[in-house]
């Protein structure tokens, strides 16, 4: 790293820690930042710090928010009997984009994965249980964790945890993308779609 001055090297190293940013991209970003007027860099730094400081976790759904409870949790028009469990705040944004789901959310901030050093107490699972205990009105929990081995395992675990409560637990379906031709589906997707088939 002797090629760079210590401060530039530090900037590259910090940027490189961000997800999806390799060493090359970090270098590019760093040199872009260094080429900006200093007011613009100050704005960027300010935005980073401000976002971090004013953002908390919603005490109800654990999503990022400026105010507690968050907009979704305090919206009385939404259906409070249904909770959709997702892995990340990003997933909430994705679900909201479809403007179809009217229930509430619960953000786990990850899935159980000892290999990545994520234990059960590192995800917001206890919070989900406490929330359900305090809200006997909840009738359905929809689990929308990712379809990875760990996402699936966490989903199965939650469903077993909730079974005694009598709350209906569902898993979002996986399968074929709309408007796509059966012929072009890959075998794994196709077989999952077959297993998740339903009656008309």
């Amino acid at each position: 790293m002797a090629r760079y001055s210590p401060s530039v090297a530090k900037l590259i190293s910090e940027l490189g820690k961000l997800p999806g940013i390799g060493h090359k991209s970090a270098q590019r970003l760093a040199f872009h930042i260094l080429s900006l007027p200093s007011e613009q860099v100050a704005d960027l730094a300010g935005a980073l710090t401000e976002a971090r400081e004013s953002t908390r976790l919603c005490s109800v759904c654990q999503n990022f928010t400026d105010k507690d409870p968050c907009d979704i949790c305090s919206d009385t028009h939404r259906d409070s009997t249904t909770i959709c469990v997702v892995e990340n705040p990003r997933d909430v944004a994705t679900m909201e984009r479809m403007r179809d789901y009217q229930g509430q959310y619960h953000v786990l901030h990850g899935v159980y994965s000892p290999m990545q050093n994520v234990g059960l107490d590192q995800i917001k699972l206890k919070e989900l249980i406490t929330r359900l205990q305090g809200n006997p009105g909840v009738r359905e929990v929809i689990i929308a964790t990712n379809q990875t081995a760990e996402g699936e395992a966490t989903a199965m675990y939650i469903s077993r945890l909730l079974k005694p409560s009598g709350i209906r637990v569902t898993r979002i379906a996986s399968g074929l993308p709309m408007g796509s031709d059966l012929e072009f589906a890959d075998d794994v997707t196709l077989s999952k779609a077959m297993r998740a088939r339903h009656e008309f």
């Binding site: 090297a9 590259i12 190293s13 490189g16 390799g22 060493h23």
Partner: peptide, 11 residues
Amino acid sequence: EAADGPDGLRR
């Protein structure tokens, strides 16, 4: 395989 990043981690 690239010795990518300052951490020298191989990706």
